[in-house]
Design a protein around this nucleic acid. Structure first.
Lengths: 109, 109
DNA sequence: CTCTGACATCGACATACGTCGATATCTTGC
DNA sequence: GCAAGATATCGACGTATGTCGATGTCAGAG
């Protein structure tokens, strides 16, 4: 992203992705899910550690889901969430195209 | 960030950083500044390519500045902006601590 | 000192967002 | 089918955010 100016479309798409990360509750949710040994968590185990109401947690999970950052799989009564690395890497890479012009060593003379 | 659950403080700090990136206009501004050969741009050259009013551009530049993503240096009549790689790397790395549990290969048995 | 031009700030507006309580939906066990 | 529990959706509320026109501030030219 930082190599050439982005057009409105790409910028909007990226911005939508970052917007999903622009909330403390969602970042904590994401880290809670990612920190699981099993790689997945029951949604019921996310409400109490987050300290928010169940509807609020459900709302944030939806935002993360729609951003493609997590997926929820229903197994019986519960829904198990796990992180999808793809979108995360995509956002990370968009910040990483930081070419020579950004480095402390201008490279060019 | 994805190795262990973050506390409220870290989550809030990170969220503030991502919030600065969660807008198409700011992403385009950032990419416009980063794409400069000279490594810096006059603010006056950012208004027209962005297609927004001068106050709006100034506002977004302020947000980027307060997020530590760019710096503006006054030289005479004009202010020259350049990207600060530090914060960018910090945000990128927070998305990169994606340990074994996120990879397609669970590693742990 | 005054004028001009670049940039920042202010005030106002519409919209988007986070949060919660109440309620709906769905799944299981009886 | 019915009751119980887990999630999701809805409606409402306060607050934050993007945008602009008008205005303020500051540096250089004359």
């Amino acid at each position: 992203m930082l190599a050439a100016p982005l057009d409105d479309v790409d910028a909007a798409a990226l911005a939508k992705g970052f917007a999903a990360l622009a909330d403390p509750a969602r970042l904590r949710l994401l880290s809670l899910i990612a920190a699981q040994e099993a790689g997945e968590v029951c949604a019921c185990d996310l409400v109490e550690p987050l300290g928010k109401s169940q509807p609020t947690v459900s709302h944030h999970l939806k935002v993360l889901r729609e951003a493609g950052l997590v997926v929820g799989e229903r197994r019986g009564t519960w829904v198990w969430y796990r992180v999808v690395p793809t979108m995360l890497e995509q956002l990370r890479d968009s910040l990483a195209a930081t070419g020579s012009r950004l480095a402390p060593h201008p490279t060019a003379r």
